[in-house]
Design a binder for these strands. Structure first.
Lengths: 242, 242
DNA sequence: AATTTAATGTGTAGAAAGTACATATTTATT
DNA sequence: AATAAATATGTACTTTCTACACATTAAATT
């Protein structure tokens, strides 16, 4: 802001039904989960005529009385019953033609959740998990949004302890490695992966073993408390603010 | 998107003057420049009563007929006369109380320009360059926005050849090192810095020497053509789109 | 009970990158 | 001619990255 504060103030106070307000703002959530060694995204069937038979991300318009971050939490809560999950803004998408019904600028968040642990309210909705690698077209510009999120996730994954939001509380190093492999799309050497992860000092050996595998069970680990349930992007901002 | 496509479509088509459209969208540009071994940001004096004597970033409302990226280029062009510069989205800021006159969600871009080379239209405006390290309070949430941008810049700076947008076309390694030092806020060892930069293979030795320094002149370099004038974030998206 | 199968768990040598550090050289200034 | 202030450069040490192989454990099979 602001090209001309007075102009803007005037706009806001007096011409609120004119051009500058003919833009709607929405939030779209890229909700990622992990099961069966496969990264999945939660989608809903689009009911716009223009996008018949295409799926779209979960989203909603932002209302004037809620923060955009609150809006994204609201969407997540309404659709999945989850709160207190990892959620972070990616960026805004605002091409003119992105929504067939009008000008809608959308702000994208991505969320990482443990599919198995949190029983979603899936069945009565038309929500479905789709393999991220399996997705061709999506409604709107949602494929672009998804790809952008995946790039962001890949960038973050070795720096920040965020992928643990996709796993159950207790997990083996094999599970963790498989998760990294499906996010990064490459195979990793087991010994080198262990060394690298252990060096980060994110994990706590809880002295338990797997008990549900048809082979030699591995040790179980948890993410250390100090790294839990943080919204890393938001934290950064909060520190700045003070 | 979209919680409920039908609801949303209805909203857009029929209730365009109701709640969901009482949100304005703006773009704010963090325009960074570099001179006298000091990173600077272009600010304008706020003329909102609430922010008397405070400065703010350059911004404007987005109109419904332009992309948000176009809007940010427009602002930059109007204010500085520059186009064809580095410009990349950071993120959206949308707290309820961030604008005293109403609900305004802003999308932030940052831009890196060479102060000396591009003669700005500074004098007839109330635009001024301010040392980034010198900034206390700003109008709106613009301090938070600036800090977020600076963090983004620091993250990017060793990975991507973007800082060259802040320098003249030909520069010495000393100038480059000083720039890195002022962005990162730390001192760097000259020999190690050279090694690291040369390893990246971004620079071309143009076989010229400085001629305006009161001491032994250093070699001049240019950024290799293949790295020039790219908008890295946007490129990523464009590739995805195809 | 013995054997087989399929996974876990661990170490080392070589390569690459990062870090700390000192001296000779070149140019402008005095 | 001497001085001052910067450029240019190399090496030893440490850390991280990478490639790679074998013994161990528990469940499943015979």
């Amino acid at each position: 802001m602001e090209k001309n504060q007075q102009l803007k103030t005037a706009a806001i106070e007096k011409i609120s039904h004119l051009d500058y307000f003919n833009i709607a703002v929405s939030v779209d959530c890229v909700i990622l989960g992990y099961s069966d060694k496969d990264l999945k995204v939660l989608l809903i069937k689009s009911d716009l005529e223009e996008f018949e038979d295409l799926y779209s991300l979960l989203g909603d318009l932002v209302n004037p009385y809620e923060d955009i971050e609150s809006a994204s939490y609201r969407i997540l809560k309404e659709r999945t019953g989850l709160d207190d999950v990892f959620l972070e803004q990616v960026q805004a998408f605002g091409s003119i033609g992105r929504h067939p019904s009008g000008r809608v600028i959308t702000i994208t968040y991505y969320s990482l959740i443990d599919i198995k642990h949190h029983k979603l309210m899936l069945d009565n909705n038309e929500l479905h998990w789709h393999s991220v690698n399996d997705i061709g077209k999506l409604a709107f510009d949602h494929k672009l949004i998804l790809d952008t999120c995946m790039n962001r996730l890949r960038q973050q994954v070795m720096e920040n302890p965020i992928v643990f939001n996709l796993l159950p509380e207790k997990f083996s190093l094999r599970q963790l490695q498989e998760l990294y492999e499906s996010i990064l799309g490459i195979e990793l050497d087991r010994r080198n992966f262990r060394k690298k992860i252990m060096l980060k000092d994110w994990l706590k050996d809880i002295e338990e073993m797997e008990d549900d595998v048809p082979h030699r069970p591995g040790k179980l680990y948890m993410l250390k408390k100090q790294f839990k349930k943080a919204n890393y992007g938001a934290i950064e901002n909060r520190i700045m603010l003070s």
